[in-house]
Amino acid sequence: MFVANKIIFLIVLLGVCFSWVGCESQEKTSTGMDLGVINPQRDFTLHDQDGKIFHLKDHRGEVILLFFGYTSCPDVCPTTLSKLARVYSLLGMGTRQKLLTLFVTIDPQRDTPQKLKEYLQYFNINAVGLSGTKQEIDKVVDAYKAMYEKVDTNSSALGYMFDHTDYLYLIDKEGKTSYLFHPEDKAQDMAQIIKGL
């Protein structure tokens, strides 16, 4: 059933892709999903962890890994960031310096810029935490067809949590989303694809 949900989600996502630009070819590889060079740029503006305005379009020429998450996320987010640390370690100095990870919080209420900064520093990767108002964040989430939902955990000792999509978007030097990485993807294979951009 879970697999079925995932497949449905991917079909919907692909459908969305197709309708964006009359695209020609899409190829599902063993690692990530190759979206081809068919995606329009989806620029956005948010605030970074130092309180400065962040425009995605100022980062042309860099390869970007975009992730939507929150710092009190216990499983998906630290696992993904730990894997990214492995990906970074597999890259040469040149590629590593041109690879920027963007962590967009879906929990602006709890994730202050300071908290985002401290959290991302811990994983020792070239990452910037981004935040904004809920409306600003939702706009970016929608643009990338990501999803999240606040969940009140009344029976658990935790406060509220989020259900969220766990994909990593690989944005190329022209600002186009070229790959979607899944949690199952291996660090080695991801590094290989990033090197190829």
Partner: peptide, 9 residues
């Protein structure tokens, strides 16, 4: 687990 395309705890 995965619910509606999202990871749920």
């Amino acid at each position: 687990s995965e619910m509606n395309g999202m990871m749920n705890m």
